[in-house]
Amino acid sequence: MPKILVLYYSSYGHLATMADAVADGARSAGAEVDVRRVPETAPFEVAEAAGFVVDQTHPQLDDVNALGDYDGIIVGAPTRFGRMPSQMAAFWDKAGGLWMSGKLNGKIGGAFTSTATQHGGQETTLFSIITNLMHFGLTVVGLDYGFQGQGGVDEVKGGSPYGATTIADGNGSRRPSASELDGARYQGRKIAALAGKVAAAERTLEPAL
């Protein structure tokens, strides 16, 4: 049974909802899944003035070394002007020891995000997350076109071959749609299935090393 971490940051709850869908997909592939959020780094008065939702549904992950305990890591964060937010970046910036030790090399990863509009930086934000994951040695799995829900223009919808996405609207009033949640589940299932195969293969090879 692969062990999967869904690690996210969410200001207004959209990414928390997407994280639960990713986790559901991973569990459907037989994985053991933990959903964790990174610490808030914005000053309290800034977060309060901006109306940030303080999500207590998922435990906070403070120890970056815990990342090494997982076979797969799926990272979700909203866009901040076309890149990952400082809260998520700050968490990974503390993980230099994991990079030096190579503890994450060969693990399976993926990214998901949220933007206010369809052209608000979804793909660049995903790539900012993916860049980090690849520097730590993870093999990245996106949202392939086996998930056909990301196609068509019949409705406003997120989704990118680089990862599951949702669109929040400028005031945050739009919540993840059924199609967007299905995409998150699809990606979570794909990542968990591959992580399980890789972990099993590595266990088979260990005695020969």
Rank of each mutant, 00 (worst) to 15 (best):
residue 38 V to A: 00
residue 38 V to E: 00
residue 39 P to I: 06
residue 39 P to H: 08
residue 39 P to W: 07
residue 40 E to W: 12
residue 40 E to I: 10
residue 40 E to R: 13
residue 41 T to K: 07
residue 42 A to K: 14
residue 42 A to Y: 12
residue 42 A to W: 13
residue 43 P to N: 01
residue 44 F to Y: 12
residue 44 F to K: 15
residue 44 F to C: 00
residue 45 E to G: 00
residue 45 E to S: 09
residue 45 E to Y: 13
residue 45 E to C: 00
residue 45 E to K: 09
residue 46 V to S: 01
residue 46 V to M: 09
residue 46 V to T: 14
residue 48 E to H: 11
residue 48 E to N: 08
residue 48 E to C: 00
residue 48 E to S: 08
residue 49 A to S: 14
residue 49 A to Q: 15
residue 50 A to L: 15
residue 50 A to E: 14
residue 50 A to H: 12
residue 50 A to I: 04
residue 52 F to I: 08
residue 52 F to L: 13
residue 52 F to A: 09
residue 54 V to R: 15
residue 54 V to E: 12
residue 54 V to I: 13
residue 54 V to Q: 14
residue 55 D to S: 03
residue 56 Q to R: 15
residue 56 Q to E: 14
residue 57 T to H: 12
residue 58 H to Y: 15
residue 58 H to E: 07
residue 58 H to D: 10
residue 58 H to C: 10
residue 59 P to I: 05
residue 59 P to M: 04
residue 60 Q to T: 15
residue 60 Q to F: 07
residue 60 Q to P: 02
residue 61 L to V: 01
residue 61 L to F: 06
residue 61 L to I: 07
residue 61 L to Y: 07
residue 61 L to M: 15
residue 62 D to E: 14
residue 62 D to V: 13
residue 63 D to H: 07
residue 63 D to S: 01
residue 63 D to A: 11
residue 63 D to Y: 06
residue 65 N to Y: 14
residue 65 N to W: 14
residue 65 N to R: 13
residue 66 A to N: 06
residue 66 A to G: 08
residue 67 L to D: 02
residue 67 L to K: 10
residue 68 G to R: 08
residue 68 G to D: 11
residue 69 D to I: 04
residue 70 Y to K: 05
residue 71 D to G: 07
residue 71 D to E: 09
residue 72 G to Q: 08
residue 72 G to M: 13
residue 72 G to V: 10
residue 73 I to V: 14
residue 73 I to T: 06
residue 73 I to C: 05
residue 74 I to N: 02
residue 74 I to S: 00
residue 74 I to H: 05
residue 75 V to K: 05
residue 75 V to W: 04
residue 76 G to I: 05
residue 76 G to H: 04
residue 77 A to G: 03
residue 77 A to T: 10
residue 78 P to C: 00
residue 78 P to F: 02
residue 78 P to D: 01
residue 80 R to I: 01
residue 81 F to P: 01
residue 81 F to V: 08
residue 82 G to F: 07
residue 82 G to I: 04
residue 82 G to E: 08
residue 82 G to V: 05
residue 83 R to F: 08
residue 84 M to G: 02
residue 84 M to I: 03
residue 85 P to R: 01
residue 85 P to Y: 01
residue 85 P to D: 01
residue 85 P to M: 00
residue 86 S to Y: 10
residue 86 S to I: 11
residue 88 M to E: 01
residue 88 M to P: 06
residue 88 M to L: 14
residue 88 M to A: 01
residue 89 A to H: 10
residue 89 A to Q: 12
residue 89 A to R: 14
residue 89 A to P: 05
residue 90 A to R: 09
residue 90 A to E: 09
residue 90 A to W: 07
residue 91 F to C: 06
residue 92 W to D: 03
residue 92 W to I: 00
residue 92 W to N: 01
residue 93 D to A: 12
residue 93 D to P: 03
residue 94 K to Y: 06
residue 94 K to N: 13
residue 95 A to T: 04
residue 95 A to V: 08
residue 96 G to A: 11
residue 96 G to C: 05
residue 96 G to Y: 09
residue 96 G to S: 13
residue 97 G to N: 12
residue 97 G to I: 02
residue 97 G to C: 09
residue 97 G to F: 09
residue 98 L to N: 03
residue 98 L to D: 04
residue 99 W to V: 04
residue 99 W to K: 05
residue 100 M to R: 12
residue 100 M to P: 00
residue 100 M to W: 13
residue 101 S to Q: 15
residue 101 S to D: 13
residue 102 G to S: 09
residue 102 G to F: 12
